[in-house]
């Protein structure tokens, strides 16, 4: 129940968006079965939301430690490039996935060490890989789009399990696994402790250094999985464009999820709803059929409205307004009550 109350604003926002899109595109909620798989705009959103959803899982943890990971977009490109490279070299699916995850883990360790041990500000530390990572990916693909035809890898991007697109299954499964790991153990609370006050947490016996390295590694692994999905989806590694600016969407998803950029308490479920909200906006704009010049402006306005509605200050003003209104009504009622008593 507490979880439901925590994510209520995000759920309401999503519901409002769905109604809004349905107003422009009446068949939005239609789902039908084609070739044994569920097809419809909603399924597209679940599938297309996978990369940002996966990134949001890792990003939530990083942000909970009062950090930020700008490199995830570039890590998508690297992991995708590595996976495609391994597949085109006939190394097999298992090796391709292992190498992609190894690349993501290496990137995460690099970020974590820079932040936790070297002590560089997270935004600067991860900026290094954000700018250089795409270059690394291009070295792997030799600057071209590395196309492959391998049904096993392609399945991860465009296959379906019980009619549900594989990318959707992957991000939901990842989110559940990570949430269970953090909430069934004390890990989640320790991460929150580090985010609230790293020194106090360390004094209380929390190994903050290892924990911070671990969350950046988790973020790298999530980005690697997102990279594999993105690459499998188009059956090719496009180092120039894969994951481009996606780190910003992931951060936005975390913020729309009501998580504070100052660290501390976090909710992965809320971040994922944030990712779904962003994808619903994107897909909704495409379905509504506006000219493409308006895409970004419409998205910006909707995001602004959502954030303003969620603003704690606005909530205070709202409660204050209600309080004063109630006081005035009571004051107005009082004189009439008195003659009766």
């Amino acid at each position: 129940m507490t979880i439901l109350r925590r994510v209520a604003p995000q759920l309401l926002t999503l519901l409002a968006l769905v109604l809004l899109v349905t107003a422009f595109f009446p068949e939005f909620l239609r789902i039908e079965v084609v070739n044994g798989r569920l097809v419809g705009p909603v399924m597209d959103i679940l599938k297309r939301g996978a990369p940002v959803g996966l990134l949001a899982v890792g990003m939530t943890l990083v942000i909970a430690t009062r950090g930020i990971d700008l490199s995830v977009g570039a890590v998508i490109a690297i992991a995708g490039a590595v996976a495609a490279w391994a597949i085109t070299r006939d190394l097999g699916l298992a090796a391709a996935l292992a190498l992609a995850f190894a690349a993501g883990l290496a990137a995460g360790l690099w970020n974590g060490v820079l932040v936790a041990i070297v002590g560089i500000q997270p935004i600067v530390a991860t900026l290094i890989l954000m700018t250089s990572g795409r270059g690394i990916a291009q070295l792997v693909t030799e600057g071209r789009i590395l196309t492959f035809s391998h049904d096993g890898l392609a399945f991860l991007g465009s296959g379906a399990v019980l009619g549900i697109p594989v990318p959707a299954v992957l991000w939901v499964a990842t989110a559940i696994a990570v949430t269970l790991l953090l909430r069934r153990t004390a890990l989640g609370m320790l991460i929150e402790a580090v985010g609230v006050n790293r020194n106090a947490a360390a004094l209380a016996g929390v190994n903050a250094t290892v924990l911070i390295i671990a969350v950046y590694s988790a973020s790298g692994l999530c980005a690697a999985l997102a990279g594999v999905v993105a690459t499998a989806d188009i059956r090719g590694a496009d180092s120039n464009n894969a994951g481009l600016w996606m780190e910003l969407d992931a951060i936005l998803a975390v913020v729309i999820g009501g998580n504070s950029l100052l660290g501390g308490r976090f909710s992965i479920a809320a971040s994922l709803l944030g990712a779904l909200i962003i994808q619903t906006i994107d897909t909704g704009i495409l379905l509504a059929g506006f000219p493409s010049e308006y895409n970004l402006s419409i998205k910006a306005v909707i995001v602004l409205v959502i954030l303003v509605l969620q603003s704690p200050n606005l909530m205070h003003h709202w409660y204050a307004l209600r309080y004063f209104a109630m006081r005035r009504r009571e004051a107005a009622l009082d004189p009439r009550k008195e003659p009766g008593t």
Binding site: A230, I234, D238, L286
Partner: peptide
């Protein structure tokens, strides 16, 4: 008519819609 940003991924996503 919509923009696909000259990329494969966007081309696929927009075509789906």
């Amino acid at each position: 008519s919509q923009t696909g940003d000259f990329t494969r991924a966007q081309g696929k996503e927009v075509m789906e819609s």
